[in-house]
Amino acid sequence: MAKTIRILVAKPGLDGHDRGAKYIARALKDAGYEVIYTGIRQSIQAIVKTAIQEDVDFIGLSLLSGAHNELFPGVVDALKKEGAEDIIVFGGGVIPEDDIPGLKTRGVEAVFTPGTPIQDVIDFIEAQRPRIESR
């Protein structure tokens, strides 16, 4: 049987626009994943500790305030510090095209901008499955 993939959907920073995060959470549940949702205004430390305790395979970060360049890589770095760099980080929100390469170099593996079909997110997750199951 295929492993049940667990995903933390988290909103770092201060913005309260959680429509996208909630949609993703629900759509991923409907796609058969176990989704942990922790609400808005989560600190980097809280996100990382939660991800570790919940032993998730992915962290999906959603942010619309423009603080992604600070906060997304912040999560990646904090995971490394905790020895949990195997947890795959992806992000979404209002993220200018120009910022995406920088985020990827800093360890955010995928960035989904507004209008991305949910299937793209699912495809991304499934593409990582061999990596997760071989752990």
Partner: peptide
């Protein structure tokens, strides 16, 4: 239906 789940209880304990 999907076997998936949304686990949100810890939200209040964050």
């Amino acid at each position: 239906f999907s076997g998936g789940a949304i686990l949100g209880d810890r939200l209040r304990m964050q």
